[in-house]
Amino acid sequence: RFQALLGEPVAAQGVRATLRERYLRGLGAARGRPTRFCLRAGVCVEAVFGAADVGAMAFQVDALRTPLGVQAAALLRCTDVLAYSFLLD
């Protein structure tokens, strides 16, 4: 991955930082909010957003509503998740 950085214009660092910071703030905003996760194979579940790990491997969620009942706490694999959404007020 870092080979690609060698030819990068200097401006890319600042832009990368801005993009990443906004993203991290977005994750912060999601915490504690009811969130709808769209997974592969048409599976959609609702849960309360708990936390995301930095390496983008998993989401920790609470009160996950599965077809078989509610799981108090769960991990969703990032590779299984296609998209998620939540409301801000």
Binding site: T18, R20, R22, Y23, G26, D89
Partner: peptide, 22 residues
Amino acid sequence: TVDPVSASVVLATFLENEKVSI
């Protein structure tokens, strides 16, 4: 934003009741 680590796209939609859907 687009997360430079995962390339995830963060979208905002403005709803009629002043709420924002992310």
